[in-house]
Design a protein around this nucleic acid. Sequence first.
DNA 1: CCGTATCCATAGGGATACTG
DNA 2: CAGTATCCCTATGGATACGG
Lengths: 120, 120
Amino acid sequence: MSKDAGQPSCPIAQTLGVFAGKWKPEILWNLKDQRLRFNELQRAVGGVSQKMLAQQLRELQRDGLVKRIQHQSIPPHVEYEATSLIKTLEPIFGELERWYKDNAPTVRRAQKKYAKNNPS
Amino acid sequence: MSKDAGQPSCPIAQTLGVFAGKWKPEILWNLKDQRLRFNELQRAVGGVSQKMLAQQLRELQRDGLVKRIQHQSIPPHVEYEATSLIKTLEPIFGELERWYKDNAPTVRRAQKKYAKNNPS
DNA sequence: CCGTATCCATAGGGATACTG
DNA sequence: CAGTATCCCTATGGATACGG
C-alpha cells in the first residue's frame, strides 16, 4: 500500500520529469544549437554509456524534445536534433544558468559550514 | 574505474542537483510559505517515507535551502523553514510552472503519438 | 515527537558482446 | 555506425524496529 497515485502533485516535479533525467540536461545542452550523431553525442556528453544514452534519447523523443533523423545509407547515419519544443525550455535553462552563476558560491559556503558542524 | 570526475560540466545540471531530488521540489513547494514540523511535512508531501524525508531534508540543509529550528521542549518540537536562498529559486519555479501550464498538452500528444508508433 | 539503524527487494546503470 | 541484449553489481528506497 501507500502506493503513489502516479502523478506528483506539483507542476514543478512534472516539468522536471521531462528534462531532468540524469543525462538529459547535458544531451539537450549539446543539441541546443547543433545536430549530432550518436557517437558524437556520446563523446560530447562524456561518461555516458551507450545503454544510457540510447535510453535517455528514447525518452526525449517520446516527450517530443528530440527528433531522430535517419539517413538511408551504408554505413548507417543517424542524427539527433532538438525540436521546437526545446526552444520553450530556454527561459528555464536561462534561469538555471543564471542561478548557478549567482548562487553557486553561496551553496559552496553552506556546504562547508554544514560539513564542519557534522563530523560525518 | 572510469569513475566520473564528479562535476557535471553544464551549469544546468549543477543547479538541478541542488533542488531536483526525488522529493525536494515538493518539500520546497510546501515550505515555500510556511514552517512545518517533520510529521506535518511528511503528510504534506504524501508518499514519502521517514527515511527519505530525513535524507532529503539533510541535503537541503547542507545546501543552505532549508533551516532546521529546534525548540527545546518535551516532547521535542522541530520545525523546518525555507531560507532566503530559496527565494532566489522562485524565478526558476515560476518558469517551470509556466512551462507546464503552456506545454503539458503538447508533451501528452507527443507521447501518444510515440506510443502509437512503438508497439513496446 | 523526531528521527536513526537495520534488513531487504528492486531498479539503475556499467561492461561487454553481438546484430542490422 | 548505431544501436540491442545480456550479465552483474551497486545504489536506492520501502518497511520495520528501535533510541533520544
